[in-house]
Design a binder for these strands. Structure first.
Lengths: 253, 253
DNA sequence: CGGAACCGCTTTGCATGCAAAATGAATCCG
DNA sequence: CGGATTCATTTTGCATGCAAAGCGGTTCCG
């Protein structure tokens, strides 16, 4: 299968990357997520290296990295195999993110020093609020929403002041359908209510951290992750919608 | 520093490993944990490759893997640097394991099919019980205890039936002081009470899962991990004891 | 007819060597 | 005398080629 598509054109962002390994990693990650390989397909280094226009050494390093991210499985002396994910795996990956973000929210509430620490969270929350209040989510606003959502989640992780937990969350979110913005669906596609619920949960998380209500913060963050599961359910019910979900081709139906 | 010690003798277990990369990974991991490198020391590939008697390619792959485990930091075009950990990092790593094992215990209680699923847990628990009841923990019994403890924790992880969570726990336990047996201290060294408390927590976890008391299971498992923090505290108060703790040289005091 | 052994081809694992980037020591300039 | 600059040396990043292990198809034997 990996030879059926033509040689891949490097996007500017990828080409900017300094090393061959970094470029190969970026390109290959997108190829896997976009479904250029069949799940359980063994990846052959030589043709792939030719296709990516790198030699086998940087390609090998890229494959190792993607294996550590969970997209590939290492089979010693038998190469790398593209991983497949059941819907159960995806539920679990989202649940895992919820657990870890819940822990981050709790630690944030326990370790909060100053109410000004919450500025980044409040700002992201307010901007998302304005975005939703002023107009229906058009395409560019939708992009903006995703950006703000990422900012909120990253600010939450910074607040917990734990490089160990931060690292674990980064690892967990490496799977394409585990990240906070994985299953955000446009209002026209998903249920619009979910956006308002999400914002309310954001406000609740901020309030809980601010009041040092650690348990409330933890469980609100957990519940917040479950919105992704609801969006996933919507997408799974609608094959057309599912096609637009990043990494959908890796999902075993 | 990395040249001060003589060439490293390969242990039989390491030599058995088929590939150069696997051997280099095992040896290098032990070297790092044993403190053959100073924290923040940059690792130079060529002399290290000579010392380990492998070429740079498998050494590079080993370095990448250890970086993904968290023992090294990657600095592109500037090699790998040995990581240092504060006591706060270690507390957080233990807390993280507690959070994840708590999640595993909860999922286990939610997903339990049959009371026979608990056999492995009960068995490990009973054997540890007998071990502690019959005699003071002598050296060989202590080794056996560690083994049984590992068996208990691994059985718990299997029970939750989530490869995603299993993976996350494995990753979290890759840090030498985060694993369930990292800070087990011999009875003569630590507080003997802690062993009995641990066994009681094990029993509680089994009971909670068996009764589908998911919240109780989650929080017992979390609290169980905190025993490691108490042992860490004992070790931190006693420099001699700390020296026997795996990875102690990476701890910034 | 079924399974084991053989054998050619493919693929991975690794060693070596070269080019580019980083380091750091000596020099130059303000 | 302190900070920028240059240049030799070191070090990383990568390409190439070879050896060994895997794979698959055929043959051989029971």
């Amino acid at each position: 299968m990996q030879n059926e598509s033509g040689p891949m054109k490097l996007s500017s962002a990828e080409a900017k990357s300094s090393s061959q390994t970094a470029r190969a990693t970026l390109v290959l990650r997108e190829m896997i997520i976009d479904g250029h390989f069949r799940p359980n397909e063994r990846i052959r280094e030589i043709p792939l290296a030719a296709q990516l226009d790198v030699s086998r050494i940087p390609l090998r390093l890229a494959l190792e990295r993607l294996a550590h991210e969970g997209l590939l499985e290492i089979r010693p002396t038998r190469g790398f195999v593209v991983q497949q994910f059941t819907t159960g795996d995806i539920y679990d990956a989202i649940e895992l993110r919820g657990i870890l973000e819940g822990a981050a929210a709790r630690l944030a509430s326990e370790r909060l020093r100053d109410s000004r620490d919450l500025a980044a969270l409040r700002e992201a929350s307010a901007e998302m609020d304005a975005l939703l209040r002023n107009r229906k989510l058009a395409l560019e606003a939708f992009t903006k929403y995703i950006e703000l959502n990422a900012k909120f989640h990253s600010a939450l992780i910074d607040l917990c002041r734990s490089r160990i937990l931060k690292r674990a969350i980064k690892q967990a979110c490496a799977l394409p359908f585990a990240s906070p913005s994985a299953f955000l669906l446009k209002q026209s596609e998903g249920s619009p209510d979910l956006f308002f619920i999400a914002l309310d949960q954001h406000r609740g998380i901020i309030e809980a951290i601010s009041n040092r209500e650690s348990m409330r913060a933890e469980f609100l963050a957990r519940e917040h992750a479950r919105l992704a599961r609801r969006n996933l359910d919507v997408a799974l019910d609608n094959r057309e919608l599912l096609k637009s979900v990043r990494g959908a081709k890796l999902i075993q139906i």
